[in-house]
Design a protein around this nucleic acid. Structure first.
Length: 302
DNA sequence: AAATCTGACAACCGCTGTGCC
DNA sequence: AGGCACAGCGGTTGTCAGATT
């Protein structure tokens, strides 16, 4: 004895590429009636497809207003920036590229952009290695004079434009100062580092990042959800102008260290070093300040 | 000229989230 | 509360055309 649902004859759905006639039927139907419930569309439109397939075909190919063809340089840069910010969130990336679908962007990334990024990162890594070999610091600590703002970042979260530029423009090296008086100059020359996971989708969707002078800063949304409007800015420079231990550990251990260690460490420091707040080691800043000060080409989102 | 390789794109599959009953 | 249907998403696979051997 079988159950009723099992006895239902399963309709044979066509698979594979869509024919022009199928496209025409689907287009006509949706334009006239709207899609409503997609599972009923193929029946009403007289198609041998399942609803899911119809939905996908409409969204990715037939929907009015879609762009097809080559991605522009601007679109490419947007995808790179947003991918750094959001990761493989193709639908969210697609929202910023009118006329492009998530599927199209995903394919473009997998077939072209990913390779391009990997190539540049490999180049960057080789450059870092050769610089480290050449500078040969005497101790485990990195000498302030040998740190190049373009290369002190771990390659995986460096601005794509910076990576490309740094490969051809060695003059960007900024001599790093010893004296605290030079701290401001140093801070204004260094890129900021902002982790995407600390931004809400509202910040991502609604903010334009504009330039103003910069400080070397790690900006973090507080993990305390009761205070969502404030972030913590950690300058990573002690008052003597040297990098703190956190920065050195980030440098020597790679991106994972930043990502995993800093929120915890910051919380500990917030709890135990409150007197430091406001003197240049820690500063409270609003999330909007971070967004307004952030520059997509100078600073780095990870 | 034929076989093979490669890249780009289209479509499918499986999982998750959401709303409704 | 739980089951179901549906939409949406991201990873993967299939297909095809052009390039290469």
């Amino acid at each position: 004895m079988g159950c009723k649902s099992c006895d239902k004859p399963k309709p044979k759905h066509r698979k594979g590429l869509w024919s022009p006639e199928e496209d025409q039927r689907l287009r006509n139907y949706v334009l006239q009636h709207g899609h409503g419930c997609w599972s009923t569309v193929p029946i009403k439109a007289g198609l041998q497809r399942n609803g899911k397939s119809c939905r996908l075909r409409w969204i990715n190919y037939l929907r009015p207003g879609l762009k097809h063809g080559v991605f522009t340089i601007q679109e490419e840069e947007t995808i790179l920036s947003l991918h750094r910010l959001l990761g493989n969130k193709w639908s969210q990336i697609a929202q910023h590229l009118p006329g492009r679908t998530d599927n199209e962007i995903k394919n473009f990334w997998n077939s072209y952009l990913k390779k391009k990024v990997m190539k540049v990162e490999a180049l960057e890594l080789a450059q870092i290695n050769s610089q480290l070999l050449n500078s040969a610091p005497k101790t485990e600590e990195y000498s302030m004079q040998t740190i190049n703002p373009n290369t002190q970042q771990v390659s995986s979260f460096q601005s794509f434009q910076q990576m490309e530029d740094s490969a051809v423009d060695a003059d960007r090296s900024v001599p790093l100062p010893h004296a605290p008086d030079d701290k401001v100059a140093l801070q204004s020359s260094l890129p900021r580092l902002l982790f995407a996971e600390w931004l809400s989708s509202d910040h991502i969707n609604n903010r334009n990042f504009v330039n103003s002078g910069g400080t070397m800063a790690i900006s973090s949304m507080m993990s305390d959800n009761s205070n969502p409007d404030y972030a913590f800015k950690h300058n990573l420079l002690r008052d003597d102008g040297q990098f703190g231990n956190e920065f050195r550990s980030g440098l020597s251990n790679g991106a994972a260290t930043y990502n995993q260690k800093f929120p915890i460490q910051l919380e500990q420091e917030i709890n135990h070093q409150i007197p430091a707040v406001g003197n240049g080691v820690f500063d409270f800043v609003s999330m909007s300040d971070i967004c307004n000060d952030f520059n997509m080409t100078h600073d780095v989102i990870y």
